[in-house]
Each structure stands twice: as structure tokens, then as C-alpha cells.
Computed example of a mutant assay.
Amino acid sequence: MVINYVKYDVKEYLPQATILIYTKCFGVGHFRKQCKQTDDTCKVCSERYPDIIKHNCSGIAKCLHCGGDHHANDMKCKVVKQYRADLTKILLSYSNKSFNNDMFNNMFTSTSEFPPLLRPTKSTINDYKMLAGEQNGIMTKLDQILNSINNINDTIGDLVKRTEQIEDWINAKQKFDLKINNGIRSLQHGISRHDGVLFNQTNFIEKLILPAMDDIMAMLSVMNVKEGR
């Protein structure tokens, strides 16, 4: 393989071989057509039964291949792992025989046959020639955009002035409301004072003047009786 005029040796990558385990007999590495077993094998206890559906498994794991305490299709089984390793070695040896690393030796990789590409030249805006009609159209659109921006600025200025006027009116109203509230409080305070004075005068009349008037009237009545009037 040649990358940037450099030749590299290529080796085929083969992952670990996939192991086929037939679920009827749990034999390793064969298909259904190759299986000669008629009974079903339980993957847990490894016992054979004519009908696996009616099988009452003990639940105790016993591998069919190594007798270990795991299922028969467990990839950690040492027998399955060994079979997989052997199969991978066979595939790798077959691949190495069929693949020829010298297949690129007859290729010509000189720079004359693969010349380097020219670097792209940077273009500037001065190198770009625009037609007169296109220039006029662009300038017209720019003028329209500038006029729109000016109109927007004028509208914003009017809104700012109106906002300032509204703020001044609100401030004046707040001051006027404050004066009204202060006047109302003063009147309420004066009314409270007058109510207090009136209450005191009423008490004075009821408790002092009226009893005195009653005494005077009683005394006048007594004098009239004595004089025979």
C-alpha cells in the first residue's frame, strides 16, 4: 500500500474465530446437518432427553465438554477456548499462505508518475472583477439598507423622547399625589384635634355648667316659694 509516496507492507487482520455451538447437542463446530444426535441436550446439566420442554432440570451446572460448573455453551470453557484458538491459528496460517506481501514490488511509485499537486492560490477581493450592473444592484441594495437603518434610528429617537416625557409626567404626578396625601393627613390631624377640644368642652358643660344651672334654678324656686310667688 502506498500512502503519500511511501510504500507500506500490508498484513491482513483477522479477529478471533467465531465458534458455532449447535443448541441441540451443544457440540462445538458443526451444523445441524452434521449432527447425528436425536435427543436434546440440556445446556445446564448436560443430560439428554427426548423432549427438552418436558425436562425437569436440577439447576446444577455441569459442562458437557469439560465437566466444569458452567453451561455447555459458555465461551469461558477451556475446551471451547482451545478449539477457538486452534481454529484461529488455522485461519491465520491459511491467510498467510494465500496473501503475497510482494504483490506491490512491481508497482512504479516514482514521483514522476505521481507528481505532487499544485497548491491552490489564494484569491483576494481585488482579483474579483464585478460587472457594472452587479455593482449598481449591490450599491442600490446597500442604500436601501442604510435608509432603513436611518428610519429605524429616527423611530427609536422618537420613542426615547416620548418615554422621557412619560417619565417626567409620572414624576410630576407622584409629587402632586404626595402633596395631596400630606394635605389629607394634615386635615385628618386637625379634625382629630378639634374633636378632642369639642369633647373636652362638652364634658365641661355637662359636668360643671349644667349642674350649676340646676342648682341656680333650684335656689330660685326656693326663693320664690318663700316670697309667696
Rank of each mutant, 00 (worst) to 15 (best):
R229N: 11
K141V: 06
G27V: 08
S95W: 03
C25S: 07
K89Q: 14
F108L: 06
F176Y: 09
F199V: 00
A132S: 13
Y8P: 04
Q135K: 15
D39C: 05
T140R: 12
N182M: 05
H194E: 11
V225Y: 11
L117P: 13
R229T: 08
M103H: 07
K175W: 08
I60F: 08
L87C: 04
M223P: 00
E164P: 00
H30D: 00
G137T: 07
N106V: 01
D51H: 13
G59F: 08
H55V: 02
T38S: 10
F204P: 00
K89M: 12
I156H: 09
K11C: 08
A218V: 03
K226Q: 05
S192N: 12
K62A: 02
P50H: 09
D168F: 07
L64H: 03
C63Q: 05
I180L: 13
F31C: 04
D214A: 05
P115N: 02
N181Y: 02
Q165T: 12
A72Q: 11
E113C: 07
C63A: 08
E113Y: 07
I19R: 05
K161D: 07
G59T: 10
S123F: 01
K81V: 06
H194A: 11
R48K: 15
L187A: 09
D51N: 15
A17Y: 07
I209T: 05
I170T: 12
N171E: 13
K43R: 15
G29F: 07
P116S: 05
N147A: 15
D195N: 08
T140H: 13
L146G: 04
Q16D: 15
G157R: 14
Q82D: 11
T38C: 02
K54L: 13
V222N: 02
R193G: 01
G228K: 03
N200W: 06
D215Q: 05
M213S: 04
R193N: 06
M103D: 12
L178T: 09
S148W: 02
D69E: 14
N147G: 11
E47Y: 11
P50M: 03
D86G: 02
L187Q: 12
E47T: 04
K122F: 08
V79S: 04
S93D: 15
L118W: 01
